[in-house]
Design a protein around this nucleic acid. Structure first.
Length: 421
RNA sequence: GGAGAGAUGGCCGAGUGGCUUAAGGCGCCUGUCUUGAAAACAGGUGUGGGGCAACCCACCGUGGGUUCGAAUCCCUCUCUCUCCGCCA
């Protein structure tokens, strides 16, 4: 969420930001109008409240009966007027909040201008694509033949877009999770295990609600929401907190399943395990001082890169352009790994600097040296999305006979086996 | 699921309708004293919002209500604790 004071003082900055994202800048005028309206109600009602407070005090100390009666009657009328104005302020507040919470973050100057994902910029490509002396198979074929991915059973118990991992496949995914968590712990992140169901308030704090309500699973009866990413509970950990300056930066990592309705993406990526309603992910999350967020972004990116590098996966770093940038983000780098079987770059990680956008929604502050309270900056990034990392590991390490070599780095979690066959 | 108790500022804790629009203590900051520190003493010390400013408004778990006036009275919900029941 953007700061209304900032919008009031720099409307042209916000208009320009919306234009860069190919969105209508007209909302800025609506915001300014609503803000003006709200402040005018506020000024009036506060004057009346001051008067009521003053006179009520006089009533308390007054001995003269007729004088008391007179003042009580006058204040009764002031009270009625206050009630009306309070309602107007409340209404203006709600309208303003509804509108402003739908406005996306302002892209950082370093984010390249562009209309959509076709104008994202490849920053660098690391590693060599594997070469085969046979036709590499896609993971859905490899997985079915080896009996480690069972699509039919997933459909049988849950419906389309679900699958079951079996035997060494299930174990390999678990190995990836453990490897990533252990790596991030070495990289100075504290592991967290969080609830997978949260309150609506928590989703609002991290920016998923109200805008992305269509992508979320919701238990209406208990009002629990399934997390679409660990970013949600991790942001929520410090909702309404003051963090000690000496504790910053706070770096967290968490494994969670992620639940997404994928309503918008119906019909996309239907083959294999690339896109489902449920997937696993290891996330990194950082709370830091504003002046450190650029530096922390670089750290997080290199930490995510190390994951791909240690797994021996060829990858490239793509910087998102303004037209493709997510709602919360100021800068985003995607990491894409090469998958030899389906012959494409798979987005496995998205590392973003969110600035104070989430911190304002979530009300997360610290006190700086000069005694002023300030919003923290937050960053988030996947330590790699599991199904896609799994796809790349399976496809890139396949052998002519359909067996799969297990990367050395994962073998400690695989009980000593070096191949799946 | 049932019964009871509770929720006040960074922390502890007083406060059952108006000299309390939050006492007192701890902690923290500043000053005096000291070679320095401690102790003692004095002053200061919540958050958000409005206003150029003086200053004003809101906030005592949440949301409503009663009243000229609510931390205080009434209703709702949430959470915590104790006991009972059920339970992986």
């Amino acid at each position: 969420m953007l700061d209304i004071t900032m919008i009031r003082e720099n409307p042209q900055v916000v208009r320009a930001a919306l234009e860069k994202r190919n969105l209508d800048p007209g909302v800025v005028d609506d915001l300014i109008r609503l803000d003006l309206e709200r402040r005018s109600y506020l000024a009036e009602v506060e004057t009346l409240k001051a008067e009521r407070n003053r006179v009520s005090k006089e009533i308390g100390s007054s001995k003269e009966k007729s004088e008391r009666e007179e003042k009580i009657n006058a204040m009764r009328q002031v009270g009625d007027r206050i009630a009306v104005l309070d309602e107007s302020v409340r209404q203006a507040d709600t309208n303003l909040r509804d509108l402003i919470s739908g406005v996306p973050n302002i892209p950082d100057d370093s984010t390249p201008l562009g209309k959509d994902e076709s104008e994202n910029v490849v920053i660098r490509t690391i590693g060599e694509k594997p070469v085969f002396n046979f036709d590499p198979k896609p993971h859905w074929q490899l997985g079915s033949e080896l009996g480690i991915i069972n699509f039919d059973q997933g459909v049988k118990i849950s419906g389309s877009r679900f699958y079951v991992l079996s035997g060494a496949g299930a174990r390999l995914q678990r190995a990836l999770i453990a490897f990533m968590l252990d790596l991030h712990i070495r990289q100075q992140y504290t592991e967290k295990y969080t609830p997978f169901m949260v309150k609506a308030e928590t989703l609002f704090a991290s920016g998923q609600l109200p805008k992305f309500v269509d992508n979320l699973y919701h238990d209406v009866e208990e009002d629990f929401w399934m997390v679409p990413t660990a970013e949600v509970p991790l942001t929520g950990l410090h909702m309404n907190d003051f963090i000690e300056e000496s504790d910053l930066p706070l770096r967290y990592t968490a494994y969670t399943p992620c639940f997404r309705r994928e309503k918008m993406s119906a019909g996309r990526d239907v083959r294999g395990i690339k896109r489902g309603h449920q997937f696993d992910k290891v996330e990194m999350y950082i709370f830091c001082k504003p002046e450190d967020s650029q530096h922390e972004l670089e750290k997080m990116l290199s930490d995510a890169e190390e994951t791909a590098r240690l797994l021996g996966l060829p990858y490239r770093i793509v910087q998102l352009c303004t037209g493709d940038l997510g709602f919360n983000a100021r800068v985003t780098y995607d990491i894409e790994v090469w998958a030899a079987g389906c012959n494409e770059w798979l987005e496995v990680s998205s590392v973003s600097n969110v600035g104070d956008f989430q911190a304002r929604r979530a009300n997360i502050k610290y006190r700086s040296e000069n005694g002023k309270t300030q919003l923290v900056h937050t960053l988030n990034g996947s330590g790699l999305g599991l199904p896609r990392a799994l796809i790349a590991v399976l496809e890139n390490n396949q052998q002519a006979d359909g067996s799969i070599r297990i990367p050395e780095i994962l073998q400690p979690w695989m009980g000593g086996i070096t191949e799946i066959r």
